[in-house]
Computed example of a mutant assay.
Amino acid sequence: MDQINNIEVVPCTNSNYLKPFRVHYNQNGTKKSWDFMRTHDSVSVLIFNTTSHCFVLVKQFRPAVYMCEWERTKPQPHETAEKADEGAAEAAGPESQEGPTVPEEKNSPPQPPASAGVTYELCAGLVDKPDLSLEEIARQEVLEECGYDVPASKLRRITSYRSGVGVTGAKQTMFYAEVSDDNCVGEGGGEPQEGELIEVVKVPLHEAMTFAYDESIPKTMGVIFSFIWFHNNMSPKYKISTNV
């Protein structure tokens, strides 16, 4: 289990991955403004192992997910104010004519476990190498994260779509790759020098749709969509129920 500690949230003044902007524009005569992030496009790959009839996913700690979960457990401002008023009224007693006083701030909620920030995802990566095609970038990610060496020509393009349209609007292109145990040339896990700590996870084909719709399993929309795509397009080929 990952150990997460010494958390410090600070302003982001410079980043190689995200750049915040505010755009002003007129829409049908109405002046509007919108805040957005400029970021890289990305690729993702649905990997299916034909030897073991399972999907190959990655599992990793995501700080953004973790912080959202932590923020969700914190009392909202109106809740804090109500508790402060209640505490002050109890301390003053029924005969006091003085207004409520705000008690000292109580300790914040306990830090969530690291598992609160762990998600199941498709193998994926940023499109940040202009000299490589999307297929070549996807091939590199499959090798680095999951340990399978798949020729770029064997990657099947599923579709592309916009993700985070309210904030980033970046495009992700999804591929499908069939691998076998013979293609496995390493353990995967990502690039340690880049700070990646990735666990390779296998989901049996017959459990795929149950996995996709289980809300207790934190996962990306890419996992759900790609499993549905496989069920609609590839399941008859393998004549195995995807347990819908």
Rank of each mutant, 00 (worst) to 15 (best):
A177N: 06
E178R: 07
T51P: 01
S33T: 12
K59V: 00
A152I: 02
P75M: 07
N233T: 08
D182N: 03
E144K: 13
E196K: 05
A212E: 13
T30G: 07
K74I: 07
P11D: 14
S153V: 01
A124G: 01
A84S: 11
P110N: 07
K219S: 03
E90R: 13
N107H: 13
L197M: 11
E8R: 11
P20C: 00
F21C: 03
T210V: 02
E207F: 12
A124D: 02
G99P: 09
P218M: 07
A114L: 12
N49W: 03
E187L: 01
M209K: 08
G222A: 04
E196F: 02
R72Y: 14
F36V: 08
Q60N: 12
T168R: 14
A114R: 13
M37V: 01
H206G: 04
V244D: 07
E8W: 01
E86Q: 15
I47A: 09
N107G: 08
E82V: 06
E145T: 00
L122P: 08
D41N: 14
E194W: 08
S115C: 10
P11Q: 08
F61C: 04
T101F: 14
A81L: 05
I224Y: 13
V102M: 10
F227H: 10
P113A: 15
P204K: 11
G190C: 04
T50R: 04
Q76F: 07
A81K: 09
A91I: 02
Y176W: 12
E71K: 10
A116S: 11
L18H: 06
T168F: 10
F48I: 10
V150P: 00
G189K: 05
F225T: 09
Q97T: 15
P110S: 10
P11S: 09
E207W: 04
G117W: 05
Y120T: 11
V150Y: 12
D131F: 08
P20R: 09
P103A: 13
S96C: 14
Q60D: 13
S216I: 01
A84M: 10
G169D: 04
I240W: 06
K32V: 00
M234I: 07
K171N: 07
D35E: 14
E104W: 13
G147R: 03
E90C: 03
S216F: 05
F230P: 00
K106Q: 14
I217S: 01
C68A: 14
F36Y: 15
S163I: 12
S216L: 03
D41C: 03
V223R: 09
V244A: 11
P204L: 04
K154L: 02
E135Q: 06
T50Q: 01
